[in-house]
Design a protein around this nucleic acid. Structure first.
Lengths: 174, 174
DNA sequence: TCTCCGAATCTAGCAACGCTAGGAACGAGT
DNA sequence: ACTCGTTCCTAGCGTTGCTAGATTCGGAGA
């Protein structure tokens, strides 16, 4: 319930609006109750991030499995990734931008995170050739991540996003 | 002087340690003096970011002009970019990660920013082919940015960075 | 039925944050 | 000598994440 409230508040007004006081008010408890369920604000954000990973994984899977061929699959997965970041900026932020202490590139990482990564990997697989699939997927993921974060931070013009994505896909799924 | 102090403090202890009080103490003035020179903390951070852009541009230029051919140039520029992010994490953060209100993808952007982008563009140019150089450079930049930010956030294992970079270069400078 | 204990919750407060209002000190110009 | 504008500081506002101590309340044992 705390997680759901935090997520709603963050998606509606951004993480800077998610204060422990507002969150407590939202769940109709007092502030210290939050600290009896979570170690601190960071832990709450981490929990929201894990939820977000599951959602992202589901989106990516839907995009991949409904594509008719490998070329469309990687394109649709990329589009779905961008769309997720675009439609849930606060969620994306806490998942991949902000510093929350979640184990990531280790076996201890949350299952939802592995699931999302695996969807990317499956989309990339047909184009891996002799390259290491894991590393190539990481690289492709990083490129997607760079595109969406720079765009959201105002560092890249929004209107050319599709064309940049096309260039990336051309280089990665030639 | 304020800018230099802010940069030192940020590079030494990260931006969360840069408070207006500590900054005032560092420059041996009182807090309100900061606000007579800058509109607020964000403006100070933006000024530091502009300084950082100039430094980055210089690093990239040195890397590019000292390379013997196009292939080595783009590789060295990428390496220099990674190294800059690695050696000046706080600086990199305020330049490309945190939300400071600097004009970016517009004519009004600081000259240093254009300079840094142009260095990337010159390195990418030999591989642009029929593609739009600006868009391709943006895409390549985004990929670099994604790699370094995900790595610094602990989302990608550090030790494989060189191999990921090699994969990226293989795809962008085939 | 009465008493006690532990869990859950609240009120109140701490230190630190960004930022600002109001006044004191000081040099330049008349 | 007097005024004025600049420069600076003290003090304080509202907010933040987080915590200590008191309080309430339900179930178990005598």
């Amino acid at each position: 319930m705390i997680i759901a409230a935090a997520r709603e508040l963050a998606e509606a007004e951004g993480w800077e609006a998610v204060t422990t006081r507002r969150l407590a008010e939202r769940i109709e408890y007092s502030q210290p109750v939050l600290y009896s369920h979570f170690k601190g604000k960071d832990a709450i954000m981490a929990a929201v991030a894990v939820e977000g990973c599951a959602d992202l994984a589901a989106d990516l899977r839907a995009a991949r499995t409904s594509a008719p061929d490998a070329s469309r699959a990687i394109a649709e997965v990329s589009r779905a990734y961008s769309a997720f970041a675009d439609q849930h900026p606060a969620l994306y932020d806490v998942m991949f931008n902000q510093a929350v202490d979640l184990p990531f590139a280790t076996p201890g990482a949350p299952a939802a995170l592995h699931a999302a990564f695996n969807e990317l990997a499956e989309a990339v697989r047909p184009y891996a050739g002799d390259d290491d699939l894991g590393l190539l997927t990481e690289t492709f993921w990083a490129a997607l991540h760079g595109l969406v974060t720079l765009m959201r931070g105002g560092r890249l013009p929004r209107e050319a996003h599709d064309r940049r994505l096309a260039l990336l896909l051309a280089r990665f799924s030639q």
